[in-house]
């Protein structure tokens, strides 16, 4: 029996080795490159260069503004959609949710091509509204990722709490604001996570819609094509830190949620 227990655990060894070689090791390499210079000596030059160059800081600000606006637009469209669908008494509403998710399975470059053709007809020349087009493109690309988690949260929400709020005299709008919205917060957080981070880095959308401004994703690429591993690693590291911060924040929300559920059980 003992020999076997060892056996079952051993099943995980290939994947553990794989993770260490191709997930952990690359991270260490990136951190190493980010804090060394071309001669291999430890240096903070890359860090300093990132935070003093108007080019990189400008790119960071531009990426964040695209991500913030895209996330807000996706929220403003996605939340009402998720809410309406979750509350609808239609029998086949699941099919409609599926219809919003379905485009996700078509290659995103092909979807952006389709969008580009339409925008070209409407606007004539795409180059006149680069920021607007980018936001439209990103929203088109990422909206399903926003709808799905919010719909799931809303459909699983305990309706009796809303009914209690109404019974206790709160109006419809007040109930939404004080009960439904806070309860659906975990869904909002995971939706935001799934939209904000990709829209900071998905430079293909900008590329295809003729927006030549760099965002964080294309910035890494520009260092990469110039064989500047050190500068590129620093950009990657900055992105990693942003991602880590986001993950920790959303993880906290998830834990809060678990606590609340545990509390409810007691």
């Amino acid at each position: 029996m003992k020999a076997f227990h060892l056996n079952r655990k051993q099943l995980g060894i290939p994947y553990a080795v794989f993770l260490i070689c191709f997930v952990l090791a690359p991270l260490i390499v990136i951190i190493h490159y980010a804090f060394t210079d071309a001669s291999g000596a430890v240096s903070l030059a890359n860090l300093k260069a990132f935070f003093t160059s108007p080019n990189t800081i400008g790119t960071l600000v531009y990426s964040i503004s695209i991500a913030v606006v895209t996330t807000l637009v996706c929220l403003l469209i996605g939340y009402p959609l998720a809410y309406i669908l979750a509350r609808s008494k239609m029998k086949k509403k699941y099919t409609i949710v599926l219809m919003f998710v379905m485009p996700m399975w078509i290659n995103f470059t092909l979807r952006i091509t389709a969008l580009k053709e339409i925008l070209t007809v409407i606007e004539g020349n795409l180059a006149f509204h680069p920021f607007l087009n980018t936001i439209i493109g990103m929203t088109y690309d990422f909206l399903p990722f926003m709808i799905l988690p919010m719909y799931t949260t809303l459909i699983n929400l305990d309706r009796s709490l809303e009914e209690a709020s109404r019974d206790l005299g709160a109006g419809e709008f007040q109930t939404f604001l004080k009960v439904t919205l806070p309860l659906s917060f975990p869904g909002i957080v995971s939706g935001v996570m799934m939209v904000f981070l990709p829209s900071m880095t998905n430079y293909v959308v900008l590329d295809m819609l003729y927006n030549s401004t760099y965002i964080m994703g294309s910035l890494i690429g520009s260092y990469f094509s110039a064989y500047d591993w050190h500068g590129g690693s620093m950009i990657a590291l900055v992105l990693l830190v942003i991602i880590l911060a986001f993950t920790l924040i959303s993880g906290r929300f998830e834990e809060d949620e678990k606590d609340r559920k545990g509390g409810a059980l007691l």
């Binding site: 994703g217 690429g221 990657a236 991602i243 986001f246």
Partner: peptide, 10 residues
């Protein structure tokens, strides 16, 4: 959770 760009680059 990582951005695909960073995964690819790393």
């Amino acid at each position: 959770v990582n951005a695909d760009v960073v995964t690819g680059f790393s």
